[in-house]
Protein backbone atom coordinates (compact mmCIF):
# COMPACT_ATOMS: atom_id res chain seq x y z
CA UNK A 1 0.00 0.00 0.00
CA UNK A 2 2.61 2.50 1.14
CA UNK A 3 4.86 1.45 -1.72
CA UNK A 4 2.13 2.00 -4.28
CA UNK A 5 0.98 5.33 -2.86
CA UNK A 6 4.43 6.80 -2.70
CA UNK A 7 5.53 5.29 -5.99
CA UNK A 8 3.15 4.81 -8.89
CA UNK A 9 0.37 6.59 -6.99
CA UNK A 10 2.25 9.86 -6.95
CA UNK A 11 2.92 9.61 -10.66
CA UNK A 12 -0.69 8.79 -11.44
CA UNK A 13 -1.96 11.64 -9.30
CA UNK A 14 0.37 14.21 -10.82
CA UNK A 15 -0.26 13.08 -14.38
CA UNK A 16 -4.04 13.28 -13.89
CA UNK A 17 -3.69 16.60 -12.09
CA UNK A 18 -1.48 18.28 -14.66
CA UNK A 19 -2.90 16.48 -17.69
CA UNK A 20 -6.47 17.06 -16.53
CA UNK A 21 -5.92 20.75 -15.98
CA UNK A 22 -4.19 21.06 -19.32
CA UNK A 23 -6.96 19.26 -21.18
CA UNK A 24 -9.60 21.29 -19.40
CA UNK A 25 -7.98 24.62 -20.20
CA UNK A 26 -7.20 23.56 -23.75
CA UNK A 27 -10.75 22.38 -24.43
CA UNK A 28 -12.22 25.54 -22.92
CA UNK A 29 -9.87 27.58 -25.03
CA UNK A 30 -11.05 25.67 -28.10
CA UNK A 31 -14.70 26.27 -27.24
CA UNK A 32 -14.03 29.94 -26.58
CA UNK A 33 -12.31 30.37 -29.95
CA UNK A 34 -15.36 28.88 -31.58
CA UNK A 35 -18.24 30.31 -29.56
CA UNK A 36 -16.84 33.35 -27.79
CA UNK A 37 -14.55 34.53 -30.57
CA UNK A 38 -15.96 38.06 -30.52
CA UNK A 39 -14.55 38.71 -27.05
CA UNK A 40 -11.00 38.22 -28.23
CA UNK A 41 -11.28 41.59 -29.98
CA UNK A 42 -11.35 43.21 -26.59
CA UNK A 43 -8.41 41.54 -24.91
CA UNK A 44 -6.42 43.95 -22.85
CA UNK A 45 -3.40 42.64 -20.94
CA UNK A 46 -3.11 45.59 -18.59
CA UNK A 47 -6.74 45.38 -17.51
CA UNK A 48 -6.46 41.62 -17.13
CA UNK A 49 -3.45 41.95 -14.84
CA UNK A 50 -5.15 44.65 -12.78
CA UNK A 51 -8.27 42.54 -12.43
CA UNK A 52 -6.17 39.63 -11.14
CA UNK A 53 -3.81 41.68 -9.02
CA UNK A 54 -6.44 43.37 -6.86
CA UNK A 55 -7.92 40.01 -5.98
CA UNK A 56 -4.55 38.49 -5.09
CA UNK A 57 -3.50 41.14 -2.60
CA UNK A 58 -5.15 41.06 0.83
CA UNK A 59 -8.28 43.22 1.07
CA UNK A 60 -7.59 44.52 -2.41
CA UNK A 61 -11.21 44.26 -3.46
CA UNK A 62 -14.32 46.01 -2.20
CA UNK A 63 -15.91 42.63 -1.52
CA UNK A 64 -12.95 41.51 0.60
CA UNK A 65 -13.21 44.70 2.61
CA UNK A 66 -16.95 44.16 3.09
CA UNK A 67 -16.24 40.89 4.91
CA UNK A 68 -12.75 41.36 6.41
CA UNK A 69 -12.78 38.32 8.70
CA UNK A 70 -13.89 35.98 5.96
CA UNK A 71 -11.43 37.38 3.44
CA UNK A 72 -8.58 37.11 5.96
CA UNK A 73 -9.46 33.48 6.50
CA UNK A 74 -9.63 32.85 2.77
CA UNK A 75 -6.23 34.47 2.42
CA UNK A 76 -4.63 32.40 5.17
CA UNK A 77 -6.22 29.29 3.73
CA UNK A 78 -4.91 29.82 0.22
CA UNK A 79 -1.46 31.11 1.12
CA UNK A 80 -0.78 28.11 3.35
CA UNK A 81 -2.34 25.79 0.80
CA UNK A 82 0.19 26.90 -1.79
CA UNK A 83 3.31 27.57 0.28
CA UNK A 84 3.39 24.64 2.69
CA UNK A 85 3.27 21.75 0.17
CA UNK A 86 5.76 23.44 -2.14
CA UNK A 87 8.30 24.54 0.42
CA UNK A 88 8.02 21.88 3.09
CA UNK A 89 11.48 20.43 3.78
CA UNK A 90 10.12 16.86 3.98
CA UNK A 91 8.67 17.23 0.49
CA UNK A 92 11.88 18.70 -0.82
CA UNK A 93 13.90 15.86 0.63
CA UNK A 94 11.73 13.46 -1.38
CA UNK A 95 12.27 15.55 -4.49
CA UNK A 96 16.02 15.57 -3.86
CA UNK A 97 16.04 11.79 -3.53
CA UNK A 98 14.00 11.29 -6.67
CA UNK A 99 15.34 13.95 -9.01
CA UNK A 100 18.38 15.39 -7.34
CA UNK A 101 16.74 18.83 -7.11
CA UNK A 102 14.42 20.41 -4.61
CA UNK A 103 12.93 23.78 -3.84
CA UNK A 104 14.05 26.08 -1.11
CA UNK A 105 12.52 25.02 2.22
CA UNK A 106 10.78 26.88 5.00
CA UNK A 107 11.54 25.88 8.62
CA UNK A 108 9.35 23.03 9.87
CA UNK A 109 8.05 25.14 12.74
CA UNK A 110 6.78 27.73 10.26
CA UNK A 111 5.19 25.02 8.15
CA UNK A 112 3.45 23.61 11.22
CA UNK A 113 2.08 26.99 12.20
CA UNK A 114 0.90 27.75 8.68
CA UNK A 115 -0.77 24.36 8.44
CA UNK A 116 -2.50 24.90 11.76
CA UNK A 117 -3.72 28.31 10.57
CA UNK A 118 -4.92 26.80 7.33
CA UNK A 119 -6.93 24.25 9.28
CA UNK A 120 -8.40 26.91 11.53
CA UNK A 121 -9.37 28.89 8.42
CA UNK A 122 -10.84 25.75 6.87
CA UNK A 123 -12.97 25.08 9.93
CA UNK A 124 -14.09 28.71 9.80
CA UNK A 125 -15.09 28.33 6.16
CA UNK A 126 -16.97 25.15 6.98
CA UNK A 127 -18.88 26.77 9.81
CA UNK A 128 -19.56 29.87 7.71
CA UNK A 129 -21.17 27.64 5.10
CA UNK A 130 -23.50 26.29 7.75
CA UNK A 131 -24.25 29.53 9.50
CA UNK A 132 -24.70 32.23 6.88
CA UNK A 133 -28.02 31.79 5.03
CA UNK A 134 -26.76 33.28 1.76
CA UNK A 135 -23.89 30.77 1.71
CA UNK A 136 -25.85 27.80 3.03
CA UNK A 137 -28.48 28.17 0.32
CA UNK A 138 -25.78 27.74 -2.33
CA UNK A 139 -23.97 24.89 -0.64
CA UNK A 140 -24.37 21.29 -1.69
CA UNK A 141 -22.95 18.19 -0.02
CA UNK A 142 -20.06 18.18 -2.42
CA UNK A 143 -18.97 21.64 -1.27
CA UNK A 144 -18.54 20.35 2.27
CA UNK A 145 -16.83 17.21 0.99
CA UNK A 146 -14.37 19.17 -1.15
CA UNK A 147 -13.53 21.46 1.72
CA UNK A 148 -12.85 18.51 4.01
CA UNK A 149 -10.84 16.75 1.30
CA UNK A 150 -8.76 19.89 0.87
CA UNK A 151 -8.03 20.01 4.57
CA UNK A 152 -7.30 16.29 5.05
CA UNK A 153 -3.74 16.22 3.63
CA UNK A 154 -2.93 19.15 5.87
CA UNK A 155 -4.49 17.65 8.96
CA UNK A 156 -2.77 14.28 8.49
CA UNK A 157 0.50 15.94 7.56
CA UNK A 158 0.44 18.08 10.68
CA UNK A 159 -0.42 15.10 12.91
CA UNK A 160 2.42 13.12 11.38
CA UNK A 161 4.81 16.02 11.77
CA UNK A 162 3.86 16.41 15.43
CA UNK A 163 3.95 12.66 15.95
CA UNK A 164 0.37 12.48 17.10
CA UNK A 165 -1.38 9.19 16.44
CA UNK A 166 0.06 6.19 14.62
CA UNK A 167 2.79 7.67 12.44
CA UNK A 168 2.75 5.15 9.61
CA UNK A 169 -1.05 5.30 9.25
CA UNK A 170 -0.95 9.09 9.29
CA UNK A 171 1.61 9.20 6.51
CA UNK A 172 -0.38 6.75 4.39
CA UNK A 173 -3.55 8.81 4.92
CA UNK A 174 -1.58 11.95 4.17
CA UNK A 175 -0.27 10.67 0.85
CA UNK A 176 -3.60 9.12 -0.09
CA UNK A 177 -5.66 12.24 0.67
CA UNK A 178 -3.11 14.41 -1.13
CA UNK A 179 -3.35 12.27 -4.21
CA UNK A 180 -7.14 12.23 -4.15
CA UNK A 181 -7.13 16.01 -3.90
CA UNK A 182 -4.75 16.40 -6.83
CA UNK A 183 -6.87 14.08 -8.95
CA UNK A 184 -10.06 15.98 -8.11
CA UNK A 185 -8.74 19.46 -8.89
CA UNK A 186 -9.16 19.37 -12.68
CA UNK A 187 -12.70 17.94 -12.50
CA UNK A 188 -14.27 20.12 -9.83
CA UNK A 189 -14.68 23.75 -8.84
CA UNK A 190 -11.13 23.44 -7.46
CA UNK A 191 -10.09 23.97 -11.06
CA UNK A 192 -10.28 27.62 -10.07
CA UNK A 193 -6.61 27.32 -9.14
CA UNK A 194 -5.99 27.88 -12.86
CA UNK A 195 -9.34 29.07 -14.19
CA UNK A 196 -9.40 31.94 -11.70
CA UNK A 197 -6.82 33.69 -13.85
CA UNK A 198 -8.88 33.26 -17.02
CA UNK A 199 -12.22 34.39 -15.64
CA UNK A 200 -10.63 37.37 -13.92
CA UNK A 201 -8.79 38.32 -17.08
CA UNK A 202 -12.05 38.14 -19.03
CA UNK A 203 -14.00 40.40 -16.69
CA UNK A 204 -10.95 42.66 -16.57
CA UNK A 205 -11.12 43.44 -20.23
CA UNK A 206 -14.89 43.26 -20.62
CA UNK A 207 -15.74 45.56 -17.70
CA UNK A 208 -12.41 47.25 -17.06
CA UNK A 209 -11.06 47.51 -20.59
CA UNK A 210 -14.22 48.36 -22.48
CA UNK A 211 -16.05 50.35 -19.84
CA UNK A 212 -13.35 51.45 -17.44
CA UNK A 213 -15.12 50.08 -14.38
CA UNK A 214 -13.25 48.59 -11.44
CA UNK A 215 -13.77 44.87 -11.10
CA UNK A 216 -12.37 44.63 -7.58
Amino acid sequence: MYEFLTGAGVWIAFVIFAGGLFVRVASLYGVSRQKDAVFYNHTNAFEAVKSIFYWLIPWGSIAARTQPVFSSMVYLFHVSLIIVPLFLSAHNVLLQEAFGVGLWSIPDSVADIMTALMLVAGVFLFIRRLVRPEVRILTEIRDYVLLVLTMLPFLTGLLASLNIGPYKTMVILHVLSGEILLILIPFTKLGHMILFFFTRAFIGFEMGGRRGARTW
Partner: peptide
Protein backbone atom coordinates in the same frame (compact mmCIF):
# COMPACT_ATOMS: atom_id res chain seq x y z
CA UNK B 1 -23.36 28.25 -24.17
CA UNK B 2 -19.66 28.93 -24.48
CA UNK B 3 -16.41 28.58 -22.61
CA UNK B 4 -17.44 31.41 -20.32
CA UNK B 5 -20.70 29.82 -19.25
CA UNK B 6 -19.15 26.39 -18.79
CA UNK B 7 -16.41 27.85 -16.63
CA UNK B 8 -18.63 30.14 -14.58
CA UNK B 9 -21.24 27.53 -13.77
CA UNK B 10 -18.55 25.12 -12.72
CA UNK B 11 -16.12 27.17 -10.68
CA UNK B 12 -18.47 29.30 -8.60
CA UNK B 13 -16.97 28.75 -5.17
CA UNK B 14 -20.35 29.46 -3.56
CA UNK B 15 -18.76 31.98 -1.23
CA UNK B 16 -21.83 34.20 -1.12
CA UNK B 17 -19.87 37.46 -1.53
Amino acid sequence: DGARIKTWLNICAKCGL
